[in-house]
Design a protein around this nucleic acid. Sequence first.
DNA 1: AACTCGTGGGC
DNA 2: TGCCCAAGAGT
Length: 374
Amino acid sequence: MAGKKTKELTYTLPEEFHVFGFSSDLLAWYDSQKRDLPWRINRDPYRVWVSEIMLQQTRVETVKPYYANFMEKFPTIGALAEAPEDEVLKAWEGLGYYSRARNLQTAAREVQARYGGVVPDSPEEIATLKGVGPYTAGAILSIAYEKAEPAVDGNVMRVFSRLLYLTDDIAKPATRIKIEHLVRQVIPHGRAGDFNQALMELGAMVCVPRTPQCLTCPVFDYCMARQEGVQEDLPIKGKAKPPRPIHLQVGVIMKEGKVLINKRPETGLLAGMWEFPMVETDVERDAAKQEVLANGIRERFGIDIEVIDMLGDVQHTFSHLQWNMQVRSCDWIDGEELPPHARFVEIDELDTYTFPGAHHKIRDLMQKRNESAR
DNA sequence: AACTCGTGGGC
DNA sequence: TGCCCAAGAGT
């Protein structure tokens, strides 16, 4: 039978895999060993939803304080839907991936308008909500509504790669689809939410990326990678491209004790966040960098400045970009008309605006300079 | 499918 | 120190 290997076959569990034993052993471990996490005190769909959005690509310990603050400020879908966007972004400040916050509020308004304030419980409807992708849809449906849907995140892909000795590259989208098919065949009836969380808990506590704790693993007996001794070589994951370097001139521009800040565009990197004005330079060519800064500020803000001195270098690396910033203190000289996205504000008022991490580093540099000046 | 979109921790 | 990683989604 040549050519018997169909796609369907690759999505089927090995015959020797004992589904029932695996699921019940994993659930028994989860029942006794699971962490007490703030979003596990009940199965309220909104609480589950917020936690899942915050946990996207973000560690549990990082999320905890943000989650507590967010649920206090926006305790219901209605509260989130009616809140000013600035307040939502401020509550997200420092968490990263800020489109999550905007999408969450957009989706909350959608739930209010179209679903009477109730998070929908069907795969088709919940998938239409902004920021709710395949993983989050499955997580909410299973945890809050006990629907037998897979919730395949990085943990689950790692666990299944080892469990079934899968050599697919987990960085490729097709691999997640395949693992969703496999997980779907293992979800125990009536405990989908706990089962999905148990898979993730196992990946976070035992089946960790480096040096997995196989000797304490509750599903050691089922693991094909462990039987072959290759658990440390799985999962297979293609390497990410290194971040692209960008060189920026940053101006801390003062006018009568106030400092100039700029609101970034509503789309793209750090959308809608505030920043210190900056100008991109070609490091190979721009020898006279302070002139590049002054000219760029004049073009974009319509004011003339004088560069006073160098405050220092600040580097900030994103997943795909590396900002190399030279920060200079400047004084306003001339020009009154600012564009609508820019304004001079008191130093003490900076806290009322939402700045991303890269600009907090610049603020730290400012404050250090101010202290040493005294 | 490949690229965009943050941040902080751990080894 | 540099690199990988962490409960991904949108385009």
